[in-house]
């Protein structure tokens, strides 16, 4: 999930994410989505002026790209500048500048008589390229509509059993006019979580609990907690009910109205996903 990896690390854990969901989804069930919610991002350094970055990119491409590659990842002669220690330690061109102005004659790099502003622009572009490389949450998903819409339609009407809940002339009518392909695919794979690109993720309540006491009295409502020792829910009137769990009960039933989507994850092939996506985008 985009959110998971703001926590830039090796150790992203299930529980961290669950806790984040609990914080994020203040109005509703704390446990409906153990996955996927935005954690606080590392404070990014002040973003450079986009016009300067743009100018720097143009200058770099024409003057430096031949040796360092147009993306600065290195070329036939020049080293990768996105992982250059000198560039990484540079601030505002103060280390890069002297190299540009004097060149590196011993390594075959000529001097470039750039102005202070041009140097600053190049530095800004390099630093923004580095930031884009290391910030995996900024990576843009490319074209995911590669499947066969006919095969997707067949899966939708057949093996996927999608028509047992959905209809392309009913609830899904015009859905592709509302959402882009990435969002549509996300809604299909993870419908308990609305994550339109660029917007904060939004929890969809899919779960309900029914707790039945030994007396036969039962309570149904939105989940508030379920662990080995306690179950709690909020009923349709907004009343909170909490019960201790013991060997003798109460009986707890968990109903996930989106269970079929979760179960699909163990059955879908990648081709099925691509084909379904190609079909869904036709539902304008």
């Amino acid at each position: 999930m985009r959110a998971r990896h703001l926590d830039v690390s090796h150790e992203v854990s299930h529980k961290v994410i669950r806790a984040a969901v609990a914080l994020l989804v203040t109005a509703c069930a704390p446990l409906a989505a153990p996955l996927a919610a935005p954690l606080a991002a590392q404070t990014p350094p002040a973003a450079p002026d986009p016009a300067s970055v743009e100018r720097g990119h143009a200058t770099f491409t024409s003057a430096c790209g031949f040796c360092h590659g147009s993306n600065a990842k290195g070329g036939e002669k020049g080293p990768d500048l996105l992982r250059s220690v000198l560039v990484l330690h540079d601030e505002g061109g103060e280390s890069i500048g002297p190299v540009i102005l004097h060149g590196r004659p011993d390594k075959g790099m000529p001097a470039f008589p750039f102005s202070a502003q041009q140097i600053k622009d190049i530095a800004n572009w390099l630093h923004s390229s580095i930031a884009a490389t290391k910030d995996r949450d900024s990576y843009k998903i490319l074209n995911i509509v590669t499947g066969d819409p006919k095969a997707g339609e067949a899966y939708f009407n057949g093996a996927g059993h999608c028509t047992s809940c959905h209809s392309v002339t009913g609830d899904l009518k015009g859905i592709a006019a509302k959402y882009d392909a990435v969002t549509l695919q996300g809604k299909m794979l993870r419908p308990d979580f609305s994550w339109k690109e660029g917007n904060p993720p939004h929890q969809v309540i899919a779960l309900s609990f029914t707790v039945t006491l030994p007396s036969g009295q039962s309570f149904t409502g939105e989940p508030m907690n379920l662990d080995d020792f306690n179950v709690a829910l909020r009923d349709a009137n907004g009343a909170y009910h909490s019960f201790a769990r013991t060997k003798d009960g109460p009986r707890v039933e968990v109903n996930n109205r989106l269970q079929a989507h979760l179960d699909l994850l163990t059955r879908l092939s990648d081709a099925d996903i691509h084909n379904l996506t190609a079909y869904l985008v036709t539902l304008k």
Binding site: M1, R4, D80
Partner: peptide, 15 residues
């Protein structure tokens, strides 16, 4: 360079 790909979590079956 970097991660080279994006990940989107789509669901889990508990712990």
């Amino acid at each position: 360079e970097g991660w080279g790909a994006a990940e989107r979590g789509v669901g889990d079956f508990g712990g």
